[in-house]
Amino acid sequence: MVPTDAYVMLSMVLFTLGAMGVLLRRNAILVFMSVELMLNAANLALVAFARRWGGLDGHLFVFFVITVAAAEVAVGLALIVAIFRNKRSINIDELSQMRG
């Protein structure tokens, strides 16, 4: 049986890769995909802990995270499409008109 530590470590590596994607990529769609990767990594940790403690609540949380991620993707991609229509670009460095 694979120890829970291994699953958590794998999930943290994936989470870090996702965080680096959010910080380093300039394409808004790629930033979004990196956020999805971070959510997935967190899901993996939740399921690993659920098996460790023998409770199903972790599975339910993952289920809700997946649902919320679906809602978030729908709204986020709609935002990206709207921004692309206005500015002809989804480079997040160029979307700086909201700074104070």
Binding site: N27, I29, V73, N91
Partner: peptide
């Protein structure tokens, strides 16, 4: 979700947007 992503990428033609060195 990933079909939605691919669809938006293709719709916007954004395959290479943002690939320029920062």
């Amino acid at each position: 979700i990933m079909v939605l992503f691919l669809f938006v990428i293709m719709l916007l033609g954004a395959e290479r947007v943002g690939a320029t060195p920062q």
